[in-house]
Computed example of a mutant assay.
Amino acid sequence: MNETIQLPLLRERFFRRERRSVPAARVFAAGTLADWGLAGTERADDVLLCVSELVTNAVVHGVPPGRQLRLLLRFDGRTVVVEVHDSGSGVPHVVHDGDEGGRGLLLVAALSDTWGVRERALGKAVWCEFERLAQEV
């Protein structure tokens, strides 16, 4: 029996404000990529590294005590979008030359095709996109 996959695919999970949420988010993202048949693609490791960086930033800087962050992964057959939502204030930015912190976003900017920050009613969503992630057949 042939199974039809409906696109876009969407997965989300909430994580607590604690450091062990970072590896848990990476495991969740790796499992999601595997389920979508993308685990062996050239850029899968880039996606996982960016998940780690964005979740780390949310845990350290973005999630107020007692709140959670939301990791959302979306795939439309060509592009994977990673979004990390938190309820903290402030706008993350890439840090250059000698400043402390902010280097994680430098990695996100270098590895993803595009990234940004979107305001929400409470907090923000930091996102990045990876185009052409599906394996060529």
Rank of each mutant, 00 (worst) to 15 (best):
79 T>V: 14
74 R>C: 03
57 N>Y: 13
134 A>H: 03
43 R>S: 02
47 V>D: 00
56 T>G: 02
120 R>C: 13
67 R>K: 13
133 L>K: 06
87 S>L: 09
135 Q>M: 07
46 D>I: 03
42 E>M: 10
98 G>Q: 10
58 A>S: 07
110 A>D: 10
88 G>V: 04
81 V>G: 05
40 G>S: 05
81 V>P: 00
29 A>G: 00
87 S>C: 11
54 L>S: 06
127 W>K: 01
30 A>D: 14
121 A>D: 11
57 N>W: 10
89 S>M: 05
49 L>A: 12
51 V>F: 12
1 M>E: 02
13 R>V: 00
52 S>D: 15
99 D>T: 14
68 Q>P: 00
105 L>F: 15
9 L>G: 10
19 R>F: 15
118 R>P: 10
109 A>M: 03
134 A>F: 06
50 C>W: 13
18 E>F: 09
89 S>E: 07
8 P>M: 09
82 V>H: 06
7 L>W: 03
47 V>H: 08
46 D>W: 05
55 V>M: 15
46 D>N: 04
131 E>C: 04
67 R>S: 09
132 R>H: 13
114 T>Q: 08
118 R>K: 02
124 K>A: 05
39 A>W: 02
119 E>T: 01
3 E>M: 12
68 Q>H: 10
128 C>M: 05
71 L>C: 03
37 G>P: 03
41 T>C: 10
124 K>H: 04
97 D>C: 06
99 D>K: 10
83 E>D: 09
20 R>I: 04
126 V>S: 14
114 T>I: 07
20 R>C: 01
123 G>I: 02
61 H>L: 13
99 D>A: 14
14 F>W: 14
82 V>K: 09
90 G>R: 13
100 E>F: 13
96 H>T: 12
121 A>S: 12
52 S>G: 14
136 E>C: 04
76 D>A: 01
113 D>L: 02
52 S>Y: 07
133 L>A: 12
20 R>P: 07
103 R>K: 11
49 L>N: 06
23 P>I: 07
56 T>C: 02
4 T>R: 09
95 V>Q: 13
102 G>T: 12
98 G>A: 14
80 V>M: 14
115 W>K: 11
52 S>N: 04
19 R>T: 02
9 L>P: 11
79 T>L: 07
88 G>R: 01
126 V>T: 08
100 E>S: 13
133 L>Y: 03
58 A>Y: 12
113 D>I: 06
15 F>W: 08
114 T>L: 02
25 A>W: 12
85 H>G: 00
61 H>T: 00
76 D>G: 01
28 F>Q: 06
23 P>A: 08
58 A>N: 03
6 Q>L: 12
115 W>M: 14
48 L>D: 05
